[in-house]
Design a protein around this nucleic acid. Structure first.
Lengths: 379, 379
DNA sequence: CTGTTAGCGCATTCAG
DNA sequence: CTGAATGCGCTAACAG
């Protein structure tokens, strides 16, 4: 069964390491550049030579050397996505971006580089400056975002999930928190609610200029005014315990409030506070959240919600950026997606019960010290 | 305010594009190689020259060209992580891996490449073969995994989240589903339960050889036997509706079953089925799930669970791989983590009610046809 | 249509 | 301790 000495190396693996273009050029008896051209198709090549080259490519299992190609061509064929804060794992919806972006990137034969860089413009610029990525996707965008300014100043291609104050010439995909809040409100008003609370993003995010938070707040104020109802704007941290405290305060101090909207994960604390206050959802209190169906349907009761198509958002952002890299004269698209209301179990007609009676049924509420509704989150 | 003509180009930006080593060598009057050595520290350089070089580096805001470095050095300083199926967004815990891996990678000054490749060994090998990544992390490992065989055959460094049948010489980090199941079971037996169901991963994953599913099943069979209780092994899809059907069926046909363990997201359907059957948790039925605290605490009742430290797992896997890349003589670590039981609200003493009576109370299990409670409203 | 050639930016070997 | 020279593998002018 032993092969003859002259046959120790049949032919499939000529050299030890991976094959290079030079090797396949030699093997197929053509010029190095011809190999390059049959591979890239950037120049017509006669069928005869093409076949010879492709045969050698198959035979050697040749793979182009990525970095070498990047060096010579000036493009890494890679985009980078920066994850927000280290605590991002607390907000599942953001993780779904990544899945969407990954799929779109892989589909376009690009590579996706992931990095953490909470708010450090330098780290972000570096990836592109070192030519490791051709462009970047940013999330958790601020109204005035230093990262974006730096990226613009350096002339690096980028795309946002979210948006800034001045969006001129900037491509982005964002959920329309404005219409989300308005749609939710209209739904609640139709059901007869006359006093609705908004559990907005935490105060520190508002202070930092987190665009979605500002948009939600403004939309809430405008819409409550136009609809002629009372609106209570709360800034509320996402973690259950802290959200619980904020919600408990609201329930204690605002008996006439019969419904709430949450911009995110705050519903956890809210639902818990409602249970603690012995208020039934939706008979005595209605809840609408901006939330992916996956989570909305997992809860009891299932949450009426504004669908947040995070996977789509990630996919679109990646596609947008890649499109721009391929043709930088392309007009930057600006997409507002989502905002579709899905009615589930957590909303219902406003209770007819007079406020006084309802106030009565609340005895286990936290002490007054915690009554500061608009509070700041500490990390 | 206009500068003189001779000053149009003060000095901070000498050339238009990014600076190269050659430029900073020229600027600081040293040899190209000297610049390389002060930057890499691989050779002693006199303080005088070092300072001149560093000054020029700062002045030009020089950044080493990643691909060029990779080409010359033969290492891309990058690792790749492959996401499982396209449906992975349904299983949040897996997403948290990515966060952990990203953090560890960034911390080690490596880059993390994300890619989708359900079960395609070719795609996985390609990233390394093209020198775009030095090694890869695989998740959703099968007992006999073609991807791993290919990686081993090619001699490419890798690390698993999960594990294979033959783990010799393979580095991995995995949750210990075996002890997770046993610990859960012991907890339930202590509470007096004598018949427990396991909602294992779906049948197709078992068939495919998904290691965690097999381990859970085997551990369940061994532990129920040893503890002298009856075990009902179910393979159950994660999606709520399908899990609901499986759970409803169990409740209808096995009145003596008073508790269940779920390996993952199946608890959603189970909880819904319990409600539909009018069985109170934990008074009439206990539930334990393998689940991250974040989700366990979001539910009503909060789920007693085996903590799945996904972030840690991702972090450890990345660190492990990077360590191995730095020194390939390092012994492959094999880590089984997690398995810690956290008792919350969903487990309690086994009900004393005789099976016959309980069977009686189950009439309102809704027929599958009427279960569509989700409706959509257009904006 | 095809071959020759010159770099891309950096790491590294070899002289000095 | 330092400088000059070579090559990593590929792309893209440039000649034929």
């Amino acid at each position: 069964m032993a092969e003859s000495d002259s046959m120790t190396k049949p032919k499939p693996t000529p050299g030890p390491g991976p094959a290079t273009m030079a090797q396949i050029a030699e093997r197929s008896g053509v010029a190095l550049s011809t190999v390059s051209y049959v591979l890239s198709g950037k120049r017509p090549v006669s069928p005869a030579m093409r076949d010879r080259v492709l045969a050698a490519v198959a035979e050697f299992d040749y793979r182009p050397h990525g970095p070498a190609r990047a060096l010579a061509s000036g493009s890494s064929h890679t985009i980078a996505l920066f994850l927000p804060s280290p605590h991002w794992d607390l907000i599942p919806v953001q993780q779904t971006f990544v899945a969407g972006a990954t799929q779109a990137t892989s589909a376009s034969d690009y590579a996706l580089l992931l990095s953490t860089a909470a708010s450090d413009p330098e780290t972000i610029v570096r990836l592109v400056a070192t030519h490791r990525a051709d462009g970047v996707i940013l999330m958790e965008t601020l109204t005035h975002d230093p990262r974006i300014e730096k990226l613009q100043a350096a002339g690096f291609p980028f795309c946002l999930i979210g948006r800034t104050a001045d969006t001129s010439g900037i491509g982005y995909v964002d959920i329309d928190y404005g219409s989300a809040v308005r749609t939710s409100l209209e739904h609640l008003v139709e059901l007869g609610h006359r006093c609705v609370a908004l559990f907005n993003f935490p105060q520190d995010q508002l202070d930092a200029g987190y665009a979605s938070a500002l948009i939600a707040r403004d939309a809430f104020e405008v819409a409550t005014a136009e609809l002629g109802i009372r609106g209570i704007h709360l800034t509320c941290p996402h973690p259950p315990q802290e959200a619980f405290a904020v919600a408990a305060c609201l329930l204690a101090s605002e008996p006439e409030c019969t419904a709430a909207i949450t911009t995110g994960w705050q519903f956890t604390g809210l639902l818990r506070a409602l249970r603690a206050a012995n208020l039934h959802v939706p008979d005595e209190f209605s809840v609408v959240s901006v939330i992916a169906a996956q989570y909305a349907e997992m809860l009891t009761p299932a949450l009426t919600g504004i669908e947040w198509p995070a996977f789509e958002a990630g996919r679109l952002a990646a596609e947008m950026l890649i499109e721009r890299l391929a043709d930088d004269s392309v007009t930057q698209r600006q997409l507002l997606i989502g905002g579709e209301l899905v009615i589930r179990e957590s909303t219902g007609p406003a209770p007819a019960t007079p406020p006084s009676k309802r106030t009565n049924s609340r005895k286990r509420i936290p002490p007054p010290e915690t009554r500061n509704l608009v509070q700041t989150q500490r990390t």
